[in-house]
C-alpha cells in the first residue's frame, strides 16, 4: 500500500502546533507576560530603539515596536488565534450539518434556504462582506465584539458548507442501500446516524480541515485591512483613536505590514509565516485524511 505522506506530515506539523499552543507559553525562553523595553542601553554605550532586529540584543526573531520579543508574541498568540479560528469553524459546522441534512429530500424550505444563503454570500468576496459587517458602528464598540465577530464570520459561510452537505446528502438518498434501509423500516434518526453520517462523515471532516485553513487566511486578510476580531479604541488625540487588538492573536502583528516592510520586515514576516504554516498544516491534514478515507478505492 502507498504510504500516506500527506497525513503523516500533517499530523506531525499539527502536533508541533499543539505543543506550541499548550506547552509553549511555559517554556523557559518564552516571556509569558510579554513585557517589552522600548529603549535598550547596551554595555558599550549608545541607545537602541525598538524594534530590534533579529538576533540583536538576544531577540531571536527580533522585537516589535513595543520591544516585545517576537518569538514569545507568536507562541503566546497561538492560543488566541486557534481559539478564534476553531470557534468559527465549529460553530459553522454545528449549524451547517443539521441544515444540510434537513434538506436531503431536496424539496421544501431547507434546500431553498440553504441555496439562497449560499448564493447570497458567494457572489461577493467574503473579506469585503466580513469587513463591512464588522465595521458597523454598533459592533465597533461592543463589549462582546469578539463573540459577535466569531458568529458573523461563521454565519457568512454557513450557506456554502450546508449547500455542499445538502447536495451530497441528496445524492446519497438516491442510492439503493438507503432505499433498502427505508424499506425495512429503519427509523429516521437511525437512518441519519447509521446510513447517512458514516458516508458523509469523511467528506465533512476533510472539508472541516480545509475550512480551518481558509479561516486562518481570512483572519490574516482582515488584519491586513485593519479589521480585527476583538479590538478596543484608545484615544490618542482629539478625534484620533488607535485600534488595539485586545487578544494576542497573530493578526495584530501584521496590521502595519505596509509600513513595516521597509523598516522592520520581521514584524509582519514571522506572524505571516505562522499563518502560512498553520494554513498549510490544516490543508495537509485535510488532504491526508481524504487519501486515508479513500484508501480502499481503486486509484
Amino acid at each position: 500500500m502507498k504510504k500516506n505522506y500527506y497525513l503523516w506530515l500533517g499530523i506531525f506539523l499539527a502536533s508541533i502546533l499543539a505543543v506550541i499552543t499548550f506547552i509553549g507559553p511555559y517554556l523557559p525562553f518564552v516571556d509569558k507576560e510579554l513585557t517589552g523595553e522600548r529603549l535598550l542601553f547596551p554595555a558599550d554605550g549608545g541607545v537602541l530603539v525598538a524594534p530590534f532586529a533579529p538576533s540583536e540584543q538576544g531577540y531571536l526573531l527580533g522585537s516589535d515596536r513595543e520591544g516585545r520579543d517576537m518569538l514569545s508574541l507568536i507562541i503566546v498568540g497561538a492560543k488566541d488565534t486557534f481559539f478564534i479560528v476553531f470557534s468559527i469553524v465549529i460553530i459553522r459546522y454545528a449549524i451547517a450539518i443539521p441544515l444540510g441534512l434537513f434538506g436531503l429530500k431536496n424539496t421544501g424550505f431547507f434546500p431553498w434556504f440553504v441555496r439562497w444563503w449560499n448564493q447570497l454570500f458567494s457572489s461577493f468576496p467574503v473579506v469585503i462582506t466580513a469587513a463591512l459587517i464588522l465595521c458597523l458602528p454598533p459592533l465597533l464598540f461592543h463589549d462582546q465584539r469578539m463573540f459577535i465577530a466569531i458568529w458573523v464570520i461563521a454565519l457568512i459561510e454557513v450557506g456554502r458548507v450546508a449547500f455542499i452537505i445538502q447536495k451530497q446528502a441528496y445524492d446519497l438518498s438516491q442510492k439503493p442501500f438507503i432505499e433498502a434501509g427505508v424499506t425495512i423500516g429503519v427509523r429516521p434518526i437511525r437512518m441519519i446516524s447509521g446510513y447517512y453520517l458514516p458516508n458523509l462523515g469523511p467528506e465533512i471532516i476533510v472539508n472541516f480541515f480545509s475550512d480551518i485553513a481558509r479561516v486562518v487566511m481570512l483572519i490574516g486578510q482582515l488584519a491586513i485591512l485593519n479589521v480585527f476580531i476583538s479590538q478596543i479604541f484608545v484615544q490618542t488625540g482629539y478625534f484620533s483613536f488607535t485600534i488595539f487588538n485586545t487578544s494576542n492573536d497573530w493578526a495584530t502583528l501584521i496590521k502595519e505590514a505596509r509600513r513595516d516592510f521597509i523598516q522592520a520586515i520581521w514584524i509582519p514576516f514571522y506572524p505571516m509565516l505562522a499563518i502560512v504554516i498553520s494554513a498549510f498544516t490544516f490543508n495537509l491534514l485535510g488532504e491526508g485524511l481524504r487519501q486515508h478515507f479513500n484508501r480502499h478505492l481503486p486509484s
Partner: peptide, 14 residues
C-alpha cells in the same frame, strides 16, 4: 496545493 495554502498577503510582502 502549496500555493493554495499560502495567503496572498504573504506572497505580496515577500
Amino acid at each position: 496545493w502549496l500555493f493554495q495554502s499560502i495567503p496572498d498577503f504573504f506572497i505580496v510582502v515577500c
